[in-house]
Design a binder for these strands. Sequence first.
DNA 1: GAAAAAAAATGAAGTAGTTTAAGACTTTTA
DNA 2: TAAAAGTCTTAAACTACTTCATTTTTTTTC
Lengths: 199, 199
Amino acid sequence: MVLKLEHSHQLIIDNVSRFIDLTELEKQKYISLLTEVKVKKKAFLMQAGEIARYEYFITKGCLKVYTLNEDGVPHISMFAVEDYWTGDMASFMTKEPSRYFIKATEDSELLGISRANYELLFQEIPKFERFYRILYQKSLISYIRRSNQGISLTAEERYIEFKTKYPNIVHRITQKDLAGYIGITPEFMSKIISKVNRM
Amino acid sequence: MVLKLEHSHQLIIDNVSRFIDLTELEKQKYISLLTEVKVKKKAFLMQAGEIARYEYFITKGCLKVYTLNEDGVPHISMFAVEDYWTGDMASFMTKEPSRYFIKATEDSELLGISRANYELLFQEIPKFERFYRILYQKSLISYIRRSNQGISLTAEERYIEFKTKYPNIVHRITQKDLAGYIGITPEFMSKIISKVNRM
DNA sequence: GAAAAAAAATGAAGTAGTTTAAGACTTTTA
DNA sequence: TAAAAGTCTTAAACTACTTCATTTTTTTTC
């Protein structure tokens, strides 16, 4: 018996099913461990100082994950859109206060899993160890690449790389936020963009 | 019956046992899937263009993992010493040619697991999905942090961060290699070090 | 243990990216 | 729909870092 799932649940099941196969019963069980969350544009999903109680899967919208340096300048570590996972894994795992803010840049909808349900998930459906092993492995590969590019490419090269890699994200965010991701000032971002467009 | 293991095997079993519990039989099975490798100082464990056939655990020595940019300038992505894991996970997983070199900076000894044995390991001892899930999760946390620091800190701040975080590595490597890791020229590294020492 | 090779230090001139400030344009809010 | 707030552009002066060239020091090699 295959039950019809609502859209957001279908999305997360499809995402998980890329790496592991679930029975209908396991799908129902998994979905029962998730919490639906809505965040309006400009609202915070999480703020620095809080403990990250959930890890999130985005079913709609766009969010930015960032820290503030001692001068209050934001440094954006990721933009998360539909079909992405986000959160502060360090705080989620250690239960120490987070240094990150997560703010919606569009009205967004997410599915969250709490720390308790995350542990329960591994007990009830051990295959999820495999799912997360592969998910983290793939994330690790792209973060290793990004941390290399951060030190080896110029700002202009990083911008071109971002545009090429995320053509679907680049037009959904402000130049200012993109500057915060690339690691430069909005003024210099503006110069780079007009230069690259002229080329 | 608890068998006595040789030193290198004891090290890797201790490493794995931080996250999962293994029976004596499982330990023997695991060890049987590993290959011992020795690399002399200045020798390559792996070179760009090759497919990464193994992931490695270091039992002795020190190695640097790096790429060369189009001008032939090395960018070091990690230094790996005893009790660390290393390799090129992207190439190991996709079987595409690697862009990385791994070179020993001291005479080194490693235990490697081949791609076939890595898959076999999950079939034979599914708990290893959990081990790698946790290992990758922890690595991910530190790479996320590093990729943020790469864009938000000055070279001097990154140097101080490295020295504080890896006091046991900083004196084992050359200033030139450290420059390649921090993402600056050896000349500027030299200036930073003499400045920081004067403070 | 001498010669060669590589690493480190220093300095002068150049470039990538920042800072500050001000005006134009766009989006949000009441 | 007007005012306010935020974003984008441009430019001049500044700083972090690079480049190139030379000398000194350390490490490697035979």
